[in-house]
Amino acid sequence: MSTFNEPADPIAQGIWPTAKQSWSDLFKWKQRVVVYNESGETTTEWQTPPRLRNPFSLMAQLTAMNWVFFIVGLAAWTADAFDFHALSIQTVKLSKYYKVTKTDISEAITLTLLLRSVGAAMFGFAGDKYGRKWPMVANMIILGLLQIATIYSTTFNQFLAVRSLFGLFMGGV
């Protein structure tokens, strides 16, 4: 669109001016946008936000292949959440099984979530380096194996160790 837009003040610098500007922009319908022209200069202008679209027409833009990838991604995320919540929803049974308190069991959740961020960073790198496919495949299979390992961990310490590893790989999804 080459319509003329009203110029705006540039984006503020520093904490306080930024806060003031953002707060006042919050109540304006138009958006403050920085535009770069061909010679590399920047100008700031007010742009009308794009119209809201019907979600179904947006979904129709996806090709069949897009949908396949989306659904596989959704399934991976669902399986991952299932694995995680299989623990959190069964804390009572697990605390009886290992004869520890529920607080001890939730320690496993803490460990899982703690290592999840580490795993996310590691698999983020792997995704950039080795591609999106094989790290993901390996990740899901290892997640499954760790679930099985959880079943066979006889002592509570083994259980905690397996759940920490699980967190590492959960971050990868």
Partner: peptide
């Protein structure tokens, strides 16, 4: 077990 099956299944589908 169900959880493990789900994860490995999705891995294989991928």
């Amino acid at each position: 077990w169900i959880a493990a099956g789900l994860s490995i299944g999705v891995g294989l589908i991928r």
